[in-house]
Design a protein around this nucleic acid. Structure first.
Lengths: 139, 139
DNA sequence: AAACATTTTTGTAATCCCTACAACTAAGTA
DNA sequence: TACTTAGTTGTAGGGATTACAAAAATGTTT
């Protein structure tokens, strides 16, 4: 929890109990959780917790660069506490979102659109079927 | 319209009046329209048109590879009738979606996730402010 | 052509994610 | 303590999308 608190302060975010809990969850669960998954998990620790707080907090984290919002499917947003350059792969079968390392991190920056005044976000998304789901299907 | 019909048939899609109209709209409007934009435009030609048909048709086009669904924001899907490899840039100010050419089209394929059995889609999205909006703001 | 089967379209109802907003609570300041 | 600001909570509402069943159109067989 200490790490999460310091993490927030480094990004200029005042560490309330709820914010620390959300940040801590993101740092200890690299599963790219949805709002609901975070809410369900944290509601056990903080019984008075509201879904709106999760939404508010995640917006705040994204604004300050402490988290990343992934719009990989049109269903619901996924969030990532790790903001170093990397891509994501979503299995359309089980819904899991995996990290994808890039062999050339400069590629995304290099191809920045010419008609952009400034870029706030760049994301590379893959969709398909993961090996786990493919194995289950062939059984 | 002839082009759109043949285009559909090449992808194994039976060319109904509505499907041809949607495909034709995508091929003649490179604006990455939303369902609502397509519906509003085509309802003038086809007064009995239903929004559901637009949804159904776009799903069908995407399944057969005749169109691309862009989930660049969480608000609503945008569609692209041009399926050659390219990225997209959305201006968070005016909402327009622009095409972005890539200097190395092999990059995306090369970085395909290791734990993927097979990939059905790969998209690179940029978000920011376009030069038009930046110019308006500075006035 | 007629009868039948299949495909496609249509419209309504319902679902679900997310946001708006106002009241409540907690924290910081003088 | 009194006051001000910041943060949280819950409900209500908006808006994109889907489910579903009826209607219409198309294709097929006799």
């Amino acid at each position: 929890m200490m790490v999460a608190k310091e993490h927030l302060m480094q990004f200029g975010i005042r560490p309330s109990v709820q914010r620390v809990a959300v940040m801590h969850y993101l740092l200890t669960h690299r599963t790219h959780p949805t709002v609901d998954e975070i809410y369900t998990a944290l509601a056990k620790e903080i019984p008075t917790l509201s879904r709106t707080t999760i939404y508010n907090t995640l917006h705040l984290l994204c604004e300050h660069g402490a988290a990343l919002a992934l719009c990989i499917d049109g269903i619901n947003a996924h969030f990532d506490g790790f903001t170093h350059p990397h891509a994501h792969f979503m299995c359309t079968c089980c819904g899991k979102v995996y990290d994808v390392d890039l062999d050339d991190a400069s590629f995304v920056k290099r191809n920045t659109p010419h008609n952009a005044s400034h870029i706030t976000d760049a994301q590379l998304y893959y969709k398909g079927v993961c090996v786990d789901c493919a194995a289950k299907k062939s059984n």
